[in-house]
């Protein structure tokens, strides 16, 4: 019920993100979602791809430092208030959210939300109260 996100170290320098995406393109890897966390001198590119294992191998070979982080991916209706319900439930269950980011999907009216929480199991259980089931890796590829 989790998807594998790749977190890739990027030096804060022009062209670094372009290089990363080029490496993915050259190997036919499709990105589903992406977000950048930035510090003054470096960034972390967080990407969801169609084939995380292949992508991790490709990027390691290309010399990137990266880690694979299990995160929750939830498809939510692209309408007012839908995120609130999820965050409310997580909050009520004392589940700390480390970061989140959203990405539109090919399906009209639907957004993909990525949640990085400290305890995936606990979060999945809490979300089940809303009848929300986080997507698995295969489902990501269907989007």
């Amino acid at each position: 019920m989790t998807v594998k996100q790749l977190s890739v170290f990027l030096e804060n320098k022009p062209g670094r993100l372009a290089e990363l995406t080029k490496a993915l393109r050259q190997n036919g890897i499709d990105m589903r979602a992406m977000s950048i966390a930035d510090a003054p001198d470096f960034g972390i590119a967080r990407v969801i791809v169609d084939d995380p294992y292949e992508a991790a191998c490709v990027l390691k070979d290309a010399g990137y430092v990266l880690s694979v982080t299990p995160v929750l991916a939830v498809a939510i209706p692209d309408e007012a208030g839908s995120l609130y319900e999820i965050l409310r439930v997580l909050g009520e269950n004392e589940i700390n959210l480390e970061y989140t980011y959203a990405f539109p999907t090919a399906k009209k009216g639907q957004a993909l939300m990525i949640f990085r929480v400290e305890n995936n199991e606990k979060a999945i259980e809490a979300l089940s109260g809303l009848s929300i089931v986080p997507l698995c890796q295969d489902a990501i590829n269907q989007l």
Binding site: Q5, S7, F9, E11, A37, D38, A39, F42, I44, R46, V65, L66, S67, T69, E98, R116
Partner: peptide
């Protein structure tokens, strides 16, 4: 140079 040992998904940890 960043190394796999020193890297983390969390900016705060690297900081």
């Amino acid at each position: 140079e960043m190394t796999p040992e020193m890297f983390s998904d969390a900016v705060s940890e690297i900081a």
